[in-house]
Design a protein around this nucleic acid. Structure first.
Lengths: 191, 191
DNA sequence: AAAGATTATTGACAAACATCAAGAAATCAT
DNA sequence: ATGATTTCTTGATGTTTGTCAATAATCTTT
């Protein structure tokens, strides 16, 4: 149940056995089914979610009712709306379960407590954020000023894993193109 | 010379006078003129830059020779290519001075040393990264699936400061739109 | 102040993409 | 297995946006 979290942590910092036992008790395991909502527009995001199993994704809905997928998360990834989590303001994001999932939830109080009591956790957070920032910047590079085809090219180069686990209409939204356009771009590949 | 840096730090963590004196000595002041390059494609990013005065921006150049502006930075902001800084791999980014600037440079060795020796610096980094991540996520939301006009609307809502200090062709690139389209969108405003 | 360089606007046209609509394929639930 | 959803593809059409080209405005430099 805590394997991915343990690996993620150990990848970046070192903890004693005692620290780890202490650490893991702050998390609340939570199972969720496909199509359930971890967070809905208007809610305040009160917990960070770490994915032990399954997948989920976040999106906004614009005034015309169109979904805009912001991000996916799979095993070993964190998911939350950080803006809402830190400001305690209602979110404009929805987070929906994509595949039946096992999550480890950490609320704000416990997050703050861990930051105070476990310097390794503060360091872990810094490094995770560093990596997330770099990845997100890459996403901006790939989203701006590229054609639909170029975006798709880069996606299969950089994260082919997506395509096996995420329906294409969500991939399309993630790339900022219509499902029809994505379908046509893919068609061009197979000949 | 260190005012913005001091303010930025004190906004998020508290330092004793001695710690501050110790801290600031790790930085190397550097003046740069408009159009100079802080970093060029192919270089390794060896220093973080904190902006005390002026402004600069980062961009990629695609195979067709088009600029894609990734980010601007003004007084009180950090600028670097984190990916290159941490991996020591050559960057695909250019960082160019927009207005004559005064920067405070921190190299990797000193950055690491400060992280080890000054827990407040580690915390400061985590918080700065948190905020940067939230801002970047906002940027992704605003870049994907919006029309040129909507992107411009959101820009003047969220960061009107840009428009007074950045030429419109760079703003256009930042929004992922051609200069002509941006010009037309702005035209629609004034009537 | 004048010449040169850079930046911004406008028009005409072409290309990329979204939308609408219909049908095929795959997945899910009973 | 079978029907019901959901997801995916394909075609026809219209809108948005990019590109090219010319001109105007602004900023720099001497």
């Amino acid at each position: 149940m805590f394997e991915w979290l343990k690996n993620s942590l150990e990848e970046h910092v070192s903890l004693t056995k005692e620290e780890w036992e202490y650490f893991k008790n702050y998390f609340r395991p939570k199972r969720m089914l496909k199509r359930q909502f971890l967070l809905q527009e208007g809610d305040v995001c009160r917990e960070l979610a770490f994915v032990e199993k399954g997948s989920l994704y976040s999106y906004t809905v614009d005034s015309a009712g169109n979904k805009h997928v912001i991000r996916f998360a799979f095993e070993g990834w964190w998911m939350a709306n950080l803006h809402s989590f830190f400001t305690e303001q209602p979110t404009r994001l929805n987070i929906e379960i994509l595949e039946n999932s096992e999550l480890l939830m950490l609320d704000r109080k416990n997050h703050d407590k861990l930051l105070e009591e476990l310097p390794a956790y503060e360091r872990y957070n810094r490094i995770i954020l560093q990596n997330a920032y770099v990845a997100l910047q890459q996403r901006v590079e790939n989203a701006l000023g590229l054609t639909a085809e170029e975006k798709y090219d880069r996606l299969i180069e950089e994260s082919p894993a997506f395509l096996n686990r995420v329906p294409l209409n969500l991939v399309a939204s993630y790339l900022g193109v219509s499902p029809e356009t994505l379908s046509r771009v893919r068609g061009n590949y197979n000949r």
